[in-house]
Structure formats: C-alpha cells, structure tokens
Computed example of a mutant assay.
Amino acid sequence: MFSGFSSFGGGFVDIPQKFEEFFRCYPVAMMNDRIRKDDANFGGKIFLPPSALSKLTMLNVRYPMLFELTANENGKVTHGGVLEFIAEEGRAYLPQWMMETLGAQPGSLLKIGSTDLPLGQFVKIQPQSVDFLDITDPKAVLENVLRKFSTLTVDDIIEINYNDNLYRIKVLEVKPDTSSRGVCVIETDLVTDFAPPVGYVEPDYKEIQKRRAEEIRRTKQDPSAHENGSMSRRINYKGMIKEHQKSQSGFAGEGQKLSGKPTNRNEEPEDLSKIKISLNGEPLKLDLPEGQLFFGFPIVLPKGSEEEDTQVNTFQGQGQSLRKSSKRRDKSDHESSKAKAPRSPEAIEID
C-alpha cells in the first residue's frame, strides 16, 4: 500500500490517511476482570481491539493518536486518546463520563475516527459542586489529573478522583477555538481558568466585616458581654456586675485624677472582692462562641506606654535623707598605714 507518488523525481509523499471504524461501545466497568483498569474511568483514553492497532500501523497516522468519537444515535461528538489495544474485536471501552457525554448506552454503535487537534493554550473549567472548594491546591490537583487526558472538548463533563472523592468538572472554553471545539493537552503549557462552581454564592464581605467590628466593639466596651460561658450563667455574672456598679454610684458628679484626667463613672469597678459568688447549682453545658474564653473575671486591658508617658509628676524636686551617711575610710589609707608598720624578722640569732 503506497501513500502516493510525487510528480518530481518519482519519490514517495507522506499523505496522512484517516482511520475510521464502527464499534459497539461499553463502559470500562464492563471489561473482563483480568484486563480491567478502574483508574481509566478518571481519564480521557479509551480501549480498542488489536485489529485497530494493525490498521493504524498500516496508515500514515500522526502521533500522538487522537480520535473523534461520534454517537450514531444522536450525533454527539467528543475526543479522546487510546490507552491500550486489548478490547474484544468489535468493541470499544470508554470511561463512564464519556458514555454520559455522548448519551450512549452499553452496546450502542459508535463511530471512531482518527483526527488532528491543535495544542491547547487555554482552558476554562467549572466545577459542578461547591465541594471542589475544599481542595487546598486545585490547580496542582488538576495538573496531575490532566496527565491521564489526551484531549479536552467544550461541553465535556469529566470526572476526577481525589482523596476518594469524586468531582465533576465541565469544560466551558478552549483556545485555540476551532471547528472541532477540542484541543490536545499533551506536552503543552496550558493556562487554566476556574469559573465559580455550580451553586456557589458570593459572600457579602462588607456585612461580615461590619458584624465582626460590632462584635469586637461590644466585647471591648461591655465587660459583662462574656455571659455566654457556663460558669458565667451559673453564677449570674452579668447581674452581679450591674449590682456592684449600682452600689458604687452613691455619689453623683465627676472627679479628677492627679494626672488631670476626669474619672469615668461608668468604667468597670476595680474592687471585685466584694462580689459574693455562689457555686451552688447544677453545672451547665460549656457553650462558648468561637474565639472566646471565660476565666471568671472581666478583662482589664493593660495601659499603653503612651498613656503612662502622659502621667504628670505631682511632686517635683530633689529630696534629702534625714540621716546623713558617714563616709567610709578609704581602703588605700588603711593599706598605707599597714605598710608603715615595721616588719618582723623571719629569724632571730642569739649569741
């Protein structure tokens, strides 16, 4: 079988020839247990019989081998590669998502032909569930998954398996855009864009920020705002704080500190030792809001350095002690007096 002749010099010209055959399609789950590969369900490659390999080797088919799959019943089209040539004669085994995309039933007639697709440059996908957002690094996961695919076609809903969870992803757009609506994803730099998952609702960040600010403001100003703890409800902490504040308001008016700042009568009392606490009663369930702890006393924030610097010294000047300290004798004088004393002889001679 010759591909053709050249009009110049009688040489051979490589003219690509197309492979096209009809097969009965079945899902991968229906393959023989000895040859079945369940991981093929989460890829984009099919199984063909050995006779298909024999015909492909006789034809001038470009590599990698890419195929166009057309359902004979409804005319739906998708693309894929080939994983192995181990299927029974007259049969082709497809991943489950590919059967659903083509709308084909087990045993349906399927036309499979060789094709050429451009290398993909861009793809936009859309997860079909908000559960996809639970993946920490979806781009890294997708990069690893696409190694099992040879092509991507618009409107395909592929399936991937990650951490024993099944995710469905729809292909919305591919570039370059051709009449085949598919691209090859083998050995190419593919830019990936994610559309919001189906069912995803964008949160109102302004409202969330406003509620957080209000909660922080309320917690800082009201020491009795921590009444949600079990111990607080058990001893009626909020009520005791209010009663103690009322008892401290016997005198009206405002006072001034030594620093010159007016006192705040509404500030929380510093002396809480007078509060009577009773631990009688049945303990309640601990139910604190997230991020809050209760230790049985109000929160008193420490004063900042700026506030300490503003304190005014009421008394200024230099003080003196009523008792003057006596001067100690200089050690050098003591040593000099010792040096003047005559030294005793080391030995005495007697005549």
Rank of each mutant, 00 (worst) to 15 (best):
M1Q: 13
F2T: 14
F5H: 15
S6P: 10
G11K: 15
F19N: 14
Y26K: 01
M30E: 15
M31G: 09
N32D: 13
D33Y: 05
D33R: 09
R34L: 04
R36G: 05
G43W: 08
G43H: 04
A52V: 02
L53C: 05
T57E: 12
L59Q: 15
L59C: 14
L59M: 14
V61M: 11
L66D: 01
F67H: 12
E68F: 00
E68K: 14
E68W: 00
T70W: 00
T70R: 09
N72S: 15
E73Q: 06
N74F: 04
N74T: 14
K76L: 07
K76Q: 13
T78P: 00
H79N: 12
G80D: 11
G81Y: 02
V82F: 03
E88S: 12
E88K: 05
R91F: 10
R91T: 15
A92C: 11
L94R: 00
P95C: 02
P95K: 00
M99I: 06
E100M: 00
G107C: 04
S108C: 02
L109A: 05
T115D: 13
D116C: 07
L119W: 11
G120C: 01
I125N: 13
Q126P: 07
P127R: 12
V130S: 06
F132C: 08
L133E: 08
I135F: 01
T136G: 02
T136D: 06
T136L: 03
E143A: 04
N144G: 10
V145N: 07
R147K: 12
S150Q: 09
S150I: 06
L152H: 00
D155E: 13
D156C: 03
I158N: 02
I160C: 03
N161M: 10
K170H: 05
S179T: 15
G182S: 09
V183G: 00
C184H: 04
C184F: 03
I186R: 10
I186W: 06
L190C: 02
V191G: 02
T192E: 03
D193S: 04
F194P: 00
A195P: 11
V198M: 14
V198S: 08
Y200F: 15
V201S: 13
I216F: 02
R217F: 10
K220N: 15
P223H: 10
S224F: 03
E227W: 10
S232G: 13
R234K: 15
I235F: 03
I235M: 05
I235G: 11
G239W: 06
K242A: 07
H244V: 05
S247L: 02
S249F: 07
G250W: 04
G253K: 08
Q256M: 08
K257H: 05
K257M: 12
L258V: 11
N264P: 02
N266P: 08
N266C: 06
E270Q: 08
K276Y: 04
P283Y: 03
L284G: 09
P289Y: 05
E290K: 09
F294N: 11
P298A: 04
P298N: 06
V300C: 09
V300A: 09
L301C: 06
L301E: 15
E306P: 03
E307A: 04
E307H: 09
V312S: 07
V312D: 02
Q318I: 12
R323C: 07
S325G: 04
S326L: 07
R328I: 08
D330Y: 06
E335F: 01
S337K: 08
K338P: 03
K340Q: 08
P342F: 01
S344R: 14
A347R: 14
